[in-house]
């Protein structure tokens, strides 16, 4: 840095760029996860391990992005949002990924472990969770634009997106509870019940973390 370029060394690379990359990775993983789940529930699934591997690889890539963001936000960087809230958002968005990966691994421990009685319900639960995650990149993009323009219009859009995510989470929560009830009432074998209950909980957590993330975002744009 020198006097000549004093002004340009004042400007630091916005961490929102990398946050967007991270959110995009999360969305991609969610789609792979969905594919893997549908495959697993189906009769003859050959790609499951391949898809799990792909998700695991993307998870570690996303981890690298997360670390990059964290390691490059030293003290003395002034941001339009509270740094603490920003990192909390990142943490929750990253947990979505961790849980996606965890669900796939958990399922792989018992191949063909989903009985036909609950197969449809689990599929339904997965379908309910995915839209919440898919909205995260859009949310980050809107946030980037909002912090640049401070336009009320973008803020309103963000608020409605956050509301949507909350709605998805609520639906997923409802499904999760019904599904647990059904598992306990229809399946008698303890091992299967344990495996399924834990699976349902992990999938439910995915939506929870997506909602937590969006709540943090809401706090960032609070006036």
């Amino acid at each position: 840095m020198n006097m000549r370029l004093l002004l340009s060394s004042l400007f630091y690379k916005s961490p929102f760029e990398n946050l967007q990359k991270h959110a995009d990775k999360v969305k991609e993983c969610a789609q792979l996860f969905q594919e893997a789940m549908v495959c697993h529930i189906g009769d003859d699934c050959k790609e499951y391990d391949l898809l799990t591997e792909q998700v695991a690889r993307m998870e570690s890539e996303a981890d690298a992005i997360k670390r990059n963001i964290r390691n490059h936000l030293p003290r003395g960087i002034l941001m339009p949002v509270d740094k603490f809230q920003f990192l909390q958002y990142l943490r929750e968005q990253d947990k979505v990924l961790d849980e996606l990966e965890e669900a796939l691994f958990w399922l792989s421990f018992r191949p063909r472990g989903i009985p036909d009685e609950v197969a449809n319900d689990i599929h339904e639960l997965v379908e309910a969770v995915i839209p919440a995650i898919e909205k995260l990149p859009e949310l980050v993009a809107l946030a980037t634009a909002y912090f640049r323009s401070k336009s009320n219009e973008q803020r309103t859009k963000m608020k409605s997106l956050i509301r949507d995510i909350r709605q998805h989470e609520r639906e997923a929560d409802l499904l999760e509870r019904e599904l647990k009830f059904k598992i306990f009432s229809t399946i008698k074998e303890a091992l299967v019940v344990y495996h399924l209950i834990r699976l349902v909980e992990i999938v439910g957590n995915i939506a929870d973390h997506a909602q937590n993330a969006s709540d943090r975002m809401r706090a960032m744009i609070a006036q």
């Binding site: 004093l6 060394s9 002034l78 339009p80 912090f147």
Partner: peptide
């Protein structure tokens, strides 16, 4: 002039109006 200008840019940043400013300079 430049120091005053840097101060002014930081002033906008303190009002949460800048992406990310490196105050270490």
């Amino acid at each position: 002039t430049t120091h005053v200008l840097v101060g002014s840019v930081v002033g906008v940043g303190l009002m949460r109006g800048m992406g990310a400013l490196d105050l270490r300079i």
